[in-house]
Design a protein around this nucleic acid. Sequence first.
DNA 1: CTGGTGATCAGTAACCATTCCTGTTTCCGA
DNA 2: TCGGAAACAGGAATGGTTACTGATCACCAG
Lengths: 139, 139
Amino acid sequence: MLVPDVREKLRRSGYTLTSQRRAVLEALSKAKGHPSAEDVYLIVKRENPRVALGTVYQALSVLEEVGVVGSKHWAESPTRYDLNVEPHLDIRCIRCGEVSEVPGVALGGVEEIIRNNTPYRVTRATMVVEGLCPACTDS
Amino acid sequence: MLVPDVREKLRRSGYTLTSQRRAVLEALSKAKGHPSAEDVYLIVKRENPRVALGTVYQALSVLEEVGVVGSKHWAESPTRYDLNVEPHLDIRCIRCGEVSEVPGVALGGVEEIIRNNTPYRVTRATMVVEGLCPACTDS
DNA sequence: CTGGTGATCAGTAACCATTCCTGTTTCCGA
DNA sequence: TCGGAAACAGGAATGGTTACTGATCACCAG
């Protein structure tokens, strides 16, 4: 996503695009996988050693709130972040912790069915998938 | 589930049915909702004040391993346990934390599709649903 | 240019669910 | 009954995340 678009999304919710928030976005695009907050922190720190881990958490939270960043949470593991905010499926290896995408699975209809079967106002429906990655299965 | 069945399932994995594990099961059936480990601990403690929280965690872990207890995990909230080990959908209110069941949603097919679209050996696929419960929506 | 105001930040302490550790008790088979 | 393994109580430790505090920064009005 382009910088002006991000700036506009932040502005609409009363936030500004600070250098730290921009650095977090750059780190996310560099990481290319599904980094944790700490992973992002380490990347940001390479260019800006004075940044604080708490700032990274807060930046990620703001960026998620305005819809620029997505997050996924597996038990017994830190929350993972990425720039792909479209609904998609990720799987995490229970041995090595690696996270990768599961292509070709559409969950759009499921969320609709859920909405029709609960009096709750659904705000989020995520599939959490775990397994053994090929490398860990072999060893 | 009947006590002899539980005992048999434990025995098959080399565990025994101790009084603490039985107390944890009783607490789960008393709680009737989706209690956290601490909720279970508080119920167990009413009858057995010397029980330790760590013991409850370990008992829940063993009981889950042998397939008597199920668990679900939402971000920013402790893990919830229940005696329903069949695949089913639970939704958690993001304001009050209440967890309740979403009936009438079958996810059996989804797991099969996931297996066919990833080289991982899938061990677990859970849907994590959040929203606002009717009471919190009104207020 | 200058001072004021609120958002943001760095640094660090605190929090909380969960796990780990240690010495003790309980349970089961011989 | 005895010996060894499993399980336990109590409490310390862990680790991801949040909260707090004072310092900075960006921006605007005068």
